[in-house]
Simulated scan of single mutants.
Amino acid sequence: MNRPSIAGIHHLKFNVSDLDRSLAFYSVALGAKRIPELDHRLPDGELFAYILEIDRLGTYLELRASPAKAAREAGLDPVTFSVETHDDLVAWHDYLEANGIPHSPVFTGVTGWLLAAEDPDGRHLRFYTLETHPVTTAFSSDEYWLGV
């Protein structure tokens, strides 16, 4: 039997402890915009998820109210965003700094440069350059930000 195809990624889902706090964070950090008509509600009308659109992400981001799951995900780095160049990464560093968003320094990765930012639930969001340098084994390590 032939393997069926995948059409792409429909959406990403992050468990969060507080919908409004996370919406505020992702709005500032990534320019996310809530799509109210896609809010998820229980039959009794209780709101339990926001759907966000982020320019150039290529898919939606769902923020789902689930405090217990969000607590267990602290320290995870579930997604790495692409940025074009090292200079763009430095601009992200400066932007995060100016907006009081916890973040790492710029690190040297295996083939490019990266940094990580922390969302309100302690999840680490990575940014990695498409610009490359020669493959190196002298890449940065940091137990907190990189898990190594």
Rank of each mutant, 00 (worst) to 15 (best):
D44E: 04
S66E: 10
S140I: 00
D55M: 00
T136K: 12
E84Y: 12
L96I: 01
A116E: 11
H86M: 03
L89N: 02
A49E: 01
G109I: 01
L114K: 12
T129R: 05
T129F: 06
S141K: 13
S140T: 10
R126V: 00
E84C: 05
P102Q: 14
G147W: 06
A71R: 10
E131P: 08
L130I: 07
H103K: 14
W145S: 01
L47V: 00
D121N: 07
G112I: 00
Y144I: 03
D121Q: 05
D121P: 12
L125W: 14
L57A: 10
G147I: 00
P120G: 12
L130D: 03
V148G: 10
T80F: 05
A65I: 00
Y60C: 00
P120S: 04
V135T: 14
V90M: 12
W92C: 11
T111K: 14
E62P: 10
V106Q: 12
D87C: 09
G75I: 07
I51C: 00
P78M: 09
A71F: 13
P78L: 08
V110Q: 08
E73H: 09
T59L: 08
Y50K: 03
H133L: 06
F127M: 07
R64S: 08
P102T: 04
G122K: 09
A65W: 13
P105D: 15
L130C: 03
L76Q: 14
L63Q: 02
T136R: 12
Y144A: 04
V90Y: 10
A91I: 07
D94I: 04
S140Q: 07
R123I: 11
S82T: 13
L52Q: 01
H93T: 08
Y128D: 08
H103Q: 10
L89Q: 04
V110I: 13
Y95R: 15
L114R: 11
P120M: 07
E84V: 05
T129Q: 05
E84R: 14
V79W: 15
Y95Q: 10
A49C: 01
D55T: 09
F81P: 02
V110H: 14
F107M: 02
L76V: 11
